[in-house]
Design a protein around this nucleic acid. Structure first.
Lengths: 202, 202
DNA sequence: TGTACATCAGTGAACGCGCGTTCACTGATGTAC
DNA sequence: TGTACATCAGTGAACGCGCGTTCACTGATGTAC
């Protein structure tokens, strides 16, 4: 017995609705405060139908990270790559990440909140997704910074500053995106200037 | 009718217990997931007694930030100050903050989680407390960095990096505190090297 | 082509449970005079 | 000193409510032959 592709699409659509609706509700009150019934109600399905898609809210949360947060993060890394060559990749990542935060604030808030939240499995899963960004920044700096241990801490610092900028944009509104981008760009430039200078010293 | 100082102490002790117990439970499951009955049970008082101290969980949360998080943050700024003069204040803040995270992981997790969490009033309140750190770092750099706008973004970047280091220590355990301190110190040094270098350029 | 059977998303009823909150009461302590 | 009264933290009983979960069922669709 094979699966009808049309039915599969329907099923997938409901699951996506549950994920999206959860992000919307989590934006206001936080993911951990949400219940299966609250989410089902907002998605306009019966509470019992929830189980056709997820075993519980924890699994839904894991799927949020895997199917939405992961691609979202990889997306702005990919877009930053298309800006090369000829630019500073770290600055491109910052600007693309901020654009992502403006485009999908609910998803960005979820990533920021769970990255620092109390649920350790979520923290770890988000950190794993963000490691992609850190690695990409590291590669982009490999030519400019000789010391490989310095390379890693520079890249990680860049990622942390970029995430902080995204958080600022969420709090201050999309109108402040240019100012926040300018600010984080300055921070990254200063940081990298230090890294390059330290190479020069050697 | 005046208040007996001894009774006042008793009352204060119960309130402190509620705050402490909330931090302990929030460390595991997150503050927003906690209920008044759960907290009261852990504090070994009747659920109805909760109302003698706080109107609801939200007020308890606000008091956590005001009476525990605030002094905690001011504490490591103050300790960093005593290390001066003769040292780099930003590095002292980093090392004292990490020491604070090791000493009181539950409070540090609460600060980190609510700083990035979904409850906007908590985010704002925590940000206000952390602004003290940023301002202190800014003052300490005033002599080394000429440009005052650069000064502010440098100080803010330092604070963000320090908080990230605290988060790393919570996740990796106190044993890694020296390594994490070393790492964040390097990041701060590179950042400040860039700041000082940019001053030299002008 | 028709018939019997399998799969599976969605559902309503029902369950036991823990929640936040109100209420009236207790008992220890302090104040007035 | 004694007596009457005020304050106030703590409590147990009780409430209505929403929760997560189980269950048996429906109906649409796909497969076997």
């Amino acid at each position: 017995v094979r699966i009808d592709p049309e039915k599969k699409e329907d099923r997938e659509r409901v699951a996506q609705t549950l994920l999206r609706v959860t992000l919307r509700l989590a934006f206001a009150h936080g993911f951990v405060s949400l219940g299966l019934r609250e989410v089902s109600r907002a998605a306009e399905i019966a509470p019992t139908s929830f189980y056709r898609h997820f075993a519980d809210m924890e699994e839904l949360g894991r799927r949020l990270i895997e199917t939405l947060a992961g691609p979202f993060i990889e997306g702005f890394v990919a877009r930053a790559r298309t800006k090369l060559p000829g630019g500073n990749f770290a600055l491109a990542v910052a600007s693309e990440a901020i654009a992502g935060a403006v485009e999908d604030p609910e998803l960005m808030r979820f990533i920021l909140a769970e990255r620092a939240g109390a649920i350790s499995t979520f923290r770890l899963a988000v950190a794993t997704k963000l490691a992609v960004v850190s690695a990409a920044v590291r590669d982009s700096l490999a030519e400019k910074v000789a010391d490989s241990s310095e390379l890693a801490i520079l890249a990680d610092a860049v990622v942390v500053l970029v995430l902080e900028a995204c958080s600022d944009v969420l709090d201050q509104g999309a109108a402040h995106a240019p100012a926040v981008t300018e600010r984080v760009s300055s921070q990254i430039r200063l940081l990298l200037a230090g890294g390059v200078a330290s190479k020069g010293r050697k």
